[in-house]
Design a protein around this nucleic acid. Structure first.
Lengths: 218, 218
DNA sequence: GGCTGTGAACGGCTTCACAGCG
DNA sequence: CGCTGTGAAGCCGTTCACAGCC
């Protein structure tokens, strides 16, 4: 709403989790929720929840709690998913189509935008009901449709080029699944490689003499 | 090697990225690497790299740098992927099969273990060359094969039950893609929901008057 | 001189404690 | 009295600066 101060990245990553629970509460017919109840649902402390929300304004009523519907709407506004922005997808392989399904099935506040693939066999075909465009068209199409968000699910060697094409088209934030670290001064990149994620997991799966560690992730 | 102190989660998540670059360097025939060069490759500061490694021992030689092969071997040892532990996969949908391919194609230090699905049509069939077992068999099979690692790629409603079955079988660490927060005092869980990841991305994709923020993720 | 390993300083996120409203 | 909003304290990871080998 009013991003006055600098918002911690950890706070942003928690907002979607609050929203998820708020949507459950809405479905359950709940009108009001306290930070304590949200704490029980999300396992974050109630102080943390209040502080996270307070970065963006005062949404609650003292002595009462938060309006479930209003808070959900506010979080959607904050995250920028209230107007359902389109996401460009590059790479129509297994992971890419999995993402497509996620977006079309669950109502996450994001719409499926243009889908690209560099494989000529896939390009101009159709995946999950969406037309697949050739990778050459990325910059032009992204620019024409004013796309700000993109996900990259291509093999490592193609990632850098695809990223450059997206950036040239004006994309502002990218979720990159390729095992390459992408970066650009004007673009937010979340590099999320499943293989490295699994390797980190392996560390915690080792049998250790002491007690098992708790939590963490994302 | 010798996890003396308490290791920051951020350090663990960087180790696979160091390893990735070390493997590239090995392929390129490099014998020695300095923290400065690794810094250029990974975009982490050289001090951070040295400190991360120092948690586990002294792997480098002053005035020289690190042996590429030896350091790679050490990191594999630390992460617990030197002996290629098996990963159990529950959910043979799009995302699950994408993960299967990742593991069988790229040599990540993890072997594909048992694959499960609750859909009777898929169970006892085959996906990507791996036999799919019914979800009822999770606990027994995981226990019998001494599996410590698992990934969950099932729909939200099934996640909790599947998780309980894995824990009962003795699994120690779980990568959960279902949009539900799973937890257990004795088990490390990384809850990684792609929808919430995309929603957080949307925040950074918003056009803001100030400068764009930098980096972050995982 | 080069590069590692590490205590010290720094900064940022979380937890605590409580003031402020309803 | 209940619950939010927030300064202060505490904690933890990163950055700095430098001592210690090669």
């Amino acid at each position: 709403m009013k991003p006055t101060r600098r918002i911690p990245a950890a706070t942003i990553s928690r907002l979607p989790l609050y929203l998820r629970e708020l949507e459950e509460l809405t479905a359950g017919g709940e009108d009001v929720v306290s930070s304590r109840v949200l704490s029980d649902l999300t396992r974050f402390t109630s102080e943390q929840i209040r502080k996270d929300l307070a970065y963006f304004g005062a949404f609650g009523r003292r002595g009462i709690g938060y309006s479930v519907r209003h808070l959900a709407a506010s979080i959607r506004q904050i995250l920028g998913i209230a107007d359902e922005p389109e996401l460009a997808l590059v790479g129509a392989g297994r992971l890419g189509t999995a993402l497509l399904r996620y977006l079309s099935r669950r109502h996450a506040g994001l719409a499926v935008g243009p889908v690209f693939d560099s494989d000529p066999k896939k390009a101009m075909g159709s995946v999950e009901g969406y037309t697949v465009l050739p990778a050459d068209a990325i910059t032009e199409e992204v620019q024409r449709r004013q796309i700000r968000l993109a996900a990259i699910t291509v093999p490592a060697p193609a990632a850098a080029q695809v990223f450059a094409a997206l950036v040239a088209g004006g994309v502002r934030a990218v979720l990159n699944f390729a095992p390459v670290k992408l970066q650009h001064p004007d673009v937010f990149v979340n590099n999320l490689d499943l293989a490295t994620e699994l390797q980190a997991l392996a560390f915690y799966g080792q049998l250790r003499e002491g007690k098992a560690d708790e939590g963490a992730g994302a």
